[in-house]
Design a binder for these strands. Structure first.
Lengths: 233, 233
DNA sequence: CGCGTGGTTGACGTTCGTCAATCTTAGTGG
DNA sequence: CCACTAAGATTGACGAACGTCAACCACGCG
């Protein structure tokens, strides 16, 4: 209910600099333009577990993660939570509220202590008109997300739980140099991201291990032994 | 395999006019600008059943439906087809290839005889830089699609087949004035859109009818008797 | 009038969610 | 640093939901 029960630290200088210069959608700008963008930013901190926005909240703000992690999730009519994505440093949210409806359909919650930079919709729109290349960057991020989301939908619609888990492992592995997957979330969130339950994840991981495809090192760490095997599940 | 086995009708005048003036992403432009956009457009016709692009195809083109219908679908690793969306007049596709990767991850196929307008990526990007308000329109469409896709993912991940079908009926009903839903596709495509099978759709519709929520008038036509009932399924 | 495609129905097996009991881990306070 | 607690993860037993396969039906088209 309460979206304002967080620690405010407005107008911190130096912090906004990260939000702008480290972020893909802005970091291609020249120095003078970067400064202009920075001046439109505010900054807020949230403690672990605090809610940044609720479904149903009015919104006209772009949120950029300065440091920390934010999880975006939805609630189905049935009340079940569905994990959508984890935002790391430099990633943003608020998009739907910014360009279409002005109320949120999802929830954003700080997973760790988190500092975010804010920009008002009107300021952003001015910037987009003034520096059209920013739009191109955002369009690129959007189309990536769209692609990802549609792939995810197809995965849910057509594949069984074990396949979804195997795919998740392979996909997560691609982002790391090692052969070890480290879950960025607990099993409950992972389960809701994969459209299943913690129990099923446990069972399927055990099954994959017994087939020799993976080795469970600890609760959140898994070593992948046979990628090709996983992909054939 | 063959993306070129279709009837070409390049440089038709008058047709492009529709593509530009009827389309939400362009129709807010002034006359002089509309003309400029029009000059960058080409036009191609496809017969019913022809493929417009394949997953894996190289692409640098925006496709706008001038008339007819196009279905976008994906193939899962398992080979199962998953229906993504139906494009009607004025809607566009090609986005992912345009702003991120340059290869398609989905398939586009003409459902009826169809005429589409084309614009090359480089031309579009020039326009976006020159007229930044176009980007805002596209951003708005993208965020709608993203919203829809994420909602769909949540639906698949958390709700059972009967609920998904009920939601589809209610959602489709919202677009029409009457209390009758007319499927724009056959049961096979509908099933793949809803992540289930034709058999299950049959059974669930029968079940919903026996509960008095709907009445099946014919194969593709369903009258909704009790929306609230459906929403509680 | 027959043929074919698409839709329906039934029987059956698999997958997976649910609930409860147990085990493990991490965090807290003495 | 250890003991205790609470939260999370695992395992088992069970049943519900749904996909699959096959047989059958119905409608549209030549």
């Amino acid at each position: 209910m309460c979206t304002h029960c967080h620690t405010h630290h407005h107008h911190l200088t130096g912090i906004q600099k990260n939000c702008v210069s480290l972020v893909p959608i802005f970091n291609h700008l020249e120095n003078r333009q970067l400064n202009e963008v920075m001046n439109k930013m505010n900054s807020v901190s949230y403690k672990k577990g605090e809610t940044i926005y609720h479904a149903g909240d009015q919104s006209d703000t772009l949120y950029i993660v300065n440091n920390g992690k934010i999880k975006i999730y939805r609630l189905a009519e049935s009340g079940k939570e569905q994990f959508i994505r984890l935002l790391n440093q430099g990633e943003f949210t608020g998009e739907y509220a910014l360009f279409s409806e002005s109320i949120h359909e999802s929830y954003a919650e700080a997973v760790t202590d988190t500092n975010v930079c804010l920009m008002k919709r009107s300021d952003l729109q001015e910037l987009l008109i003034k520096y059209p290349t920013i739009s191109l960057k955002i369009l690129s991020v959007f189309s990536d997300r769209l692609e990802h989301s549609e792939k995810q939908t197809t995965l849910f619609a057509t594949e069984k739980a074990e396949t979804r888990i195997a795919f998740f492992l392979v996909q997560t592995l691609e982002d790391t140099p090692s052969s070890e997957v480290m879950f960025p979330m607990n099993k409950k969130d992972l389960a809701s991201y994969l459209g299943t339950t913690p129990e099923t994840i446990s069972r399927k991981l055990t099954h994959l291990e017994s087939r020799g495809y993976i080795k469970q090192k600890s609760n959140k760490r898994i070593e992948v032994l046979d990628i090709n095997g996983l992909l054939l599940v």
